[in-house]
C-alpha cells in the first residue's frame, strides 16, 4: 500500500529571489537575476527586456540595444565621422552592425580605435536603459550559434556593476528622475550659472517637446551622458521637465461620452442590472 508522506524529506527548492543584502556585499546585483543566471550557465542568445535587448555569447554581452539610446550608427554618423550612406551600404552588404563596423575598418574608412570606442560606449549606454527596473519579466531566446566573434565582449558582472554605479551617479547629482524621460523645457532664473560647452549644446536642443533621448540622438551623443548634463542643469535650475498633461492624472472615465458603447461598460451594466433584478 502506498502512503503519501505529509512531511517531505527535504523542503522544496527556494524560488530565485533578489537578495539585496548579499548583492550589497558583492558590490553588484540587483540588476537582473535572470541575467546573472544566464552568465553563470554561459548562455548564448538574446535577452529581451522592457526597455531594450542584450545579446549574449557564451555568457558575455556582445551587443546591447535600447530605443532610449542612440546606436553605434548614430554616434558615428551624426557629426560626419562616417557618411550615413557609407554606413547603410556596409550594413546592407554584411547584414549586421558588428560586421558592418569591421568592414568599414578593413576598408580604411574608420579607425579601429574609433569603432571600438563608440561600440563600447554605445553598449554600456544601451545596457544602462535595458537593465533599468522594469514592470514586466524579461525573456531569453537561446541561439544555437555562438554570437559574432567579438573582440571585446563585456562580462555581465562588469556591466551590471557599471549600470548600478551610473544609477547612483545620477541620483547623487539630482535625485529627481523627471528629466530622464519627460519633454524638457528651459527654466528661467535670474542669474543662471555658467554652462559648459557640452551643456550649451544640450540647451540649444530644448524645445518643450524633445526628451533626453531625442536630444542625445540629435547630438549623436550617448543618452546617459545627456542624462548627466540634464540632471546637473536641473540641479542648477536651468532645465526642468514639463509637467505631464493633467488629463492623465484625472478621472479615467472623464471624457468618455455617457452613451459610449465600450463592450466592457455594456457588460458591467448588464451585470449590474442582473444583480439588481435578483
Amino acid at each position: 500500500m502506498t502512503a503519501v508522506r505529509t512531511t517531505p524529506a527535504a523542503p522544496p527548492p527556494r524560488l530565485p529571489a533578489r537578495d539585496k543584502a548579499a548583492a550589497r556585499d558583492r558590490g553588484w546585483g540587483g540588476g537582473s537575476p535572470m541575467l546573472t543566471r544566464l552568465a553563470a550557465e554561459r548562455a548564448t542568445g538574446v535577452l529581451v527586456r522592457e526597455r531594450g535587448t542584450l545579446r549574449l555569447s557564451r555568457g558575455r554581452v556582445v551587443d546591447a540595444e535600447s530605443p532610449a539610446a542612440p546606436g553605434l550608427d548614430v554616434l558615428l554618423t551624426a557629426r560626419g565621422t562616417l557618411d550615413g550612406e557609407v554606413w547603410r551600404q556596409a550594413l546592407a552588404e554584411t547584414g549586421d552592425r558588428h560586421h558592418a563596423g569591421h568592414r568599414l575598418v578593413e576598408g580604411g574608412l574608420l579607425a579601429p580605435g574609433a569603432l571600438e570606442l563608440c561600440r563600447l560606449v554605445a553598449l554600456y549606454d544601451a545596457a544602462y536603459f535595458t537593465l533599468a527596473p522594469s514592470s514586466t519579466p524579461g525573456r531569453f531566446r537561446y541561439a544555437a550559434e555562438d554570437g559574432p566573434d567579438c573582440g571585446c565582449p563585456v562580462p555581465v558582472a562588469a556591466l551590471e556593476r557599471e549600470t548600478l554605479r551610473r544609477r547612483d551617479l545620477l541620483h547623487r547629482i539630482w535625485p529627481d528622475p523627471a528629466t530622464d524621460e519627460r519633454p524638457l523645457t528651459r527654466a528661467h532664473r535670474a542669474t543662471p550659472p555658467p554652462s559648459t560647452v557640452r551643456q550649451r549644446a544640450v540647451l540649444a536642443e530644448l524645445d518643450d517637446v524633445r526628451t533626453a533621448t531625442d536630444i542625445a540622438r540629435g547630438l549623436g551623443r550617448p543618452a546617459f551622458h545627456t542624462l548627466v548634463d540634464l540632471r546637473r542643469m536641473a540641479a542648477a535650475g536651468v532645465v526642468a521637465a514639463r509637467e505631464p498633461a493633467p488629463a492623465e492624472a484625472s478621472d479615467p472615465l472623464e471624457g468618455i461620452p455617457a452613451d459610449a458603447v465600450d463592450p466592457h461598460i455594456t457588460l458591467l451594466k448588464r451585470l449590474r442590472d442582473a444583480l439588481e433584478a435578483l
Binding site: 550649451r200 549644446a201 547630438l219
Partner: peptide, 11 residues
C-alpha cells in the same frame, strides 16, 4: 550666450 550657442552643433 546660452541662447546663441556656436560650438558643438551637430555637423
Amino acid at each position: 550666450k546660452v541662447g546663441i550657442h556656436e560650438g558643438g552643433t551637430p555637423g
